[in-house]
């Protein structure tokens, strides 16, 4: 079985390395500061204890007050996984650092989130719409999108 690592157990280890990076930890996930996302992700990927070499999925959820981007990381070697979350509160201009440099799996998935939620991923080399065409009005997976008929 893939062991879902407990956010509560990992949080102190990450806090020790990067003080102030974890906002909230629960049994199944870790909510982290957007600014420390890249450092944390890189640490989780390269440390032998975690070895999260596989990015299973990235997705976003619009909670109206903020966007939550969810990263599910897996280690194929240790067969464990971790759910990382980061929030963007700025609805006008939401942005997060891109994890493209760590996992190229983010390539198409970040583009999809950019297309459907309008969240910018800084550092993505080819951030443009993927399933909708250029000029499409708005970002349809936002809860306040008014484009359907």
């Amino acid at each position: 079985m893939t062991v879902a690592l407990s956010g509560k157990e990992i949080a102190p280890k990450l806090e020790k390395q990067f003080p102030g990076s974890v906002i909230e930890s629960s049994e199944d996930s870790l909510l982290i500061k957007p600014e420390s996302l890249l450092d944390l992700a890189s640490f989780l990927k390269t440390t032998a204890e975690f070895n999260f070499n596989y990015l299973t999925t990235i997705t976003a959820v619009d909670y109206r007050d903020y966007f939550e981007v969810v990263y599910i990381l897996t280690s194929l070697e240790h067969n464990h996984s971790l759910k990382l979350k980061a929030r963007c509160h700025d609805r006008k201009n939401p942005s997060l650092p891109s994890v493209f440099s760590l996992w190229r799996a983010a390539d198409l998935q970040e583009r999809e989130i950019f297309d459907l939620f309008g969240i910018k991923f800084d550092g993505h080399p080819n951030l443009k719409r993927i399933v909708l065409w250029e000029g499409f009005p708005g970002h349809p997976l936002r809860k306040d999108w008014q484009g359907g008929d």
């Binding site: 079985m1 893939t2 070499n53 596989y54 990015l55 299973t56 999925t57 194929l76 067969n79 996992w103 190229r104 799996a105 390539d107």
Partner: peptide, 25 residues
């Protein structure tokens, strides 16, 4: 590269990674 790009299924296994969710999870 197969692992890094998040490949799965026969594409991942074709590259020699023994990873099948039916066994792993």
């Amino acid at each position: 590269l197969a692992i890094n790009i998040g490949a799965s299924g026969p594409v991942l296994r074709g590259s020699g990674v023994k990873w099948d969710i039916r066994k792993a999870d």
